[in-house]
Design a protein around this nucleic acid. Structure first.
Lengths: 250, 250
DNA sequence: TATCGGGGATGACGCAGCGTGAGGGTCAAG
DNA sequence: CTTGACCCTCACGCTGCGTCATCCCCGATA
């Protein structure tokens, strides 16, 4: 017989949540003292675990109640249904993302086509430092050539290129989160897309591509782009994938 | 100078929404008559369009107000940020889906391991028809062998296999939506995963793999799985990718 | 001009899932 | 008995409107 606070702490939730679940009838205490205190037993704790689990999956509380209370309810079917709903939401967000990309493209169309377009949303001083570092790293001529080539792209093309880079980054991060081997086919496929992306303005050989990977690891700006504060080690992951790619294909 | 209803109809929203936007100061009418009537002009209509656009992207109204009212606000940065947030939610849903898949697997562990596990969530009669069709298509022996092989998998393995198929399907659909060439490396990489998935119970040669692709196109059940009502042509896309793969690699 | 139908306006509750006080009993220890 | 540490019950807040309920207003017709 545990009190609200003990149960809340044990289950990693809040007292208020227990009050709420009691109020909506989702989880009632096993006993209520004459003083009105709520006391929970083993059985209630188990039920709470299940509730919290389903909640983590994103099921609304009403459905959780249905799943747990209706003995005829098929939890498998509920999970499959919920899974489908999640897939649907993912699709929806994908659509939104594509619309956003197009919007970004059209917004940029309103501005003059200059070097800044290629670094939209990036502070000028940061951009300049990147450029200086890039020049030190690969030599002035290569960078100048890249910029000259970039200037020949239309605004739509630039938008598409930026969108592609965003997609590549998202894929890298996803695969990294999933713990996939950098040498695996899936990661190497993304790395291939990345190589072709780089090729928009540059055709690195194996050594240069590996160098770019190291640059992602060593340069704080690039780290920030990929690392995202939540994915420590992601730049190293990408660099490793690039190294493997360079050895195999370049 | 249009009234609420006219504006609402023109913009495809509701009168209540206009009231709400007025109440929170997001969109105020250009003029308010002495009788309290709200009248909107061209300028307000334009602003409403922008509001509705950003809203469709999923931005909270408070942020929309910030974007539209703060002249120093960078809409590009806001869009990029929102895009990242959407990516994050997609990742979150992906995690949920994987957890659901594992849960489904463990739920099934409580049941007897029989053929049904391999077709969890699919109506028995549908499953039986699939089996008959499969037997006609590839011959009874091949199907029986596949089922015998399937029965040797542990429940966890079955769950993993199902999860992998879901992932493959999602990737195919995504690439199809993105309009990628079926012969491209990205699509072929997924097709390779698909081939290895099929190999769990079967090792088709080039002709058989192409036949499987055609089956996806011609069989209504399989169409439903991939087509999703929103992606007409997706089965053909997959079949084409499989044909290319078969010619190149099998 | 009285009337009627189609708007228009202003509250205000509802929904999901609690967070966050406010205001006030209760319990165990010193 | 006092003191903290807990417990309880309201009840508002947040998001973005949908949905009444109640009442006012305008143009057209009889």
């Amino acid at each position: 017989m545990r009190t609200v606070r003990q149960v809340a702490k044990a289950a990693g939730t809040s007292v208020r949540t227990l009050h709420h679940y009691d109020a909506i009838g989702l989880l009632k205490p096993g006993h209520v003292g004459t003083n009105g205190y709520r006391y929970y037993g083993r059985e209630e704790l188990l039920r709470l675990q299940q509730i919290l689990f389903f909640r983590e999956l994103g099921l609304p509380l009403a459905e959780i109640a249905a799943v747990l209370d209706d003995p005829a309810f098929d939890p498998l079917a509920a999970l499959h249904e919920h899974r489908a709903a999640l897939e649907g939401r993912i699709g929806h967000y994908r659509t939104l993302i594509r619309t956003i990309d197009r919007t970004i493209a059209s917004l940029e169309k309103d501005e003059d086509m200059n070097d800044n377009d290629y670094y939209a949303g990036i502070a000028p001083e940061t951009r300049d430092r990147w450029q200086r570092e890039a020049e030190e790293f690969w030599g002035e001529d290569a960078v100048a050539a890249a910029q000259a080539k970039a200037r020949t792209f239309s605004k739509d093309q630039v938008a598409a290129i930026q969108a592609e880079m965003e997609a590549i980054r998202a894929d890298f991060q996803r695969l990294f989160r999933e713990g996939v081997d950098p040498a695996s086919d899936a990661v190497q496929a993304v790395t291939d897309r990345h190589y072709r992306w780089v090729s928009h303005s540059w055709s690195p050989d194996a050594a240069a591509f590996k160098g770019l990977g190291r640059h992602y690891v060593e340069n704080p700006e690039f780290r920030g782009t990929y690392d995202d504060a939540e994915l420590p080690g992601c730049p190293e992951f990408i660099a490793e994938a690039m190294a493997v790619y360079a050895d195999r294909s370049l």
